[in-house]
Simulated scan of single mutants.
Amino acid sequence: MLTLTEQRQALETQAAAYLSDNADFVRLQTLPGVGPIIALMILAESGDLRRFSHHRQYLKFCGFNLAASQSGNTCSRYRLGKRGNARLRYAYWLAATVAIRMRENSFRGKFERYRQADPTNADLKRKALTAVAAKMARVAHALIKQEVDYRGYHEYGIPGGGTALARP
């Protein structure tokens, strides 16, 4: 167990050493739940996120798009497509798991709102975690595309000239 921890730490230091000058690598780490290894996974599997003109294209690439299973005239419920990159989907799943365990951020708020109807339902928990992972992918795409860092509770301008906190 100790050797795995040492290997993980060595990988983190190597990733930070090689990619510390990469703006996308540093920007991804501003997301809650994304550390050096997950940021490395996202960049390695996605390539340049700027090549996706819309976040829906990126979500489809990740496999977070919804798809209906149809046969003849019958149409079942919509489910996760899962036709995209499984390793990338797994990276966002891990990041979402860490983010919802953090004290306060918008991802945890989305998770709590999603599970509010029945907190003991395991299926609803899985769906909520998937929704948070998809939101993280959308936010990561926006961060890279717009070249801004993540701000959890951003401020917006009031018409009178002051600032106020946006709702989480």
Rank of each mutant, 00 (worst) to 15 (best):
S46H: 06
Q116S: 08
N65D: 15
L19T: 01
R27T: 15
Q57H: 14
G84D: 05
K60H: 11
A86K: 15
G157R: 15
L4T: 12
R108Y: 05
E104R: 08
G81L: 13
N22V: 01
L43D: 01
Y90W: 15
P36A: 14
R138F: 00
D21R: 03
F64H: 06
A128P: 03
M102A: 14
Q116N: 09
A16F: 12
K135V: 00
Y90A: 15
Y114W: 14
I100P: 02
T120Q: 09
R8D: 13
K125V: 10
W93M: 02
T30S: 13
P32L: 04
R77F: 13
V98K: 14
L80N: 01
R108M: 01
S71V: 09
T130G: 02
V34T: 09
Y150N: 06
G35N: 06
S53Y: 09
A164K: 08
F25T: 02
Y92H: 15
D48K: 05
R151F: 00
A10E: 11
L143H: 06
Q7K: 12
A17Y: 01
G84H: 02
H54C: 13
R115W: 02
K135C: 04
H141D: 08
K125S: 14
V26L: 01
P32H: 08
F111P: 02
A95C: 05
A99W: 06
R83D: 10
P168Q: 10
V98W: 11
V139P: 00
G162P: 09
I158L: 15
Y153M: 03
H54V: 03
A166Y: 12
I38D: 01
A128G: 03
K110M: 07
S20K: 05
G72I: 11
A166R: 13
M1Q: 10
L40R: 10
L143N: 05
A39T: 05
G157A: 14
A166P: 00
S106F: 04
K125N: 10
G33F: 05
E112V: 10
M136D: 09
I42R: 03
R51P: 03
L28Q: 01
P36K: 04
A95F: 04
T13D: 10
H54R: 11
A91F: 07
G157T: 11
L19G: 00
E12H: 02
R126F: 01
K125Q: 13
G35A: 07
L88E: 07
A128N: 04
D21C: 03
L31P: 07
L94Q: 15
N22G: 00
S46M: 04
F52W: 07
L129D: 06
A67M: 07
V98I: 12
S71I: 08
G33T: 06
Y153Q: 15
L88P: 07
L129H: 14
I158S: 13
L11G: 00
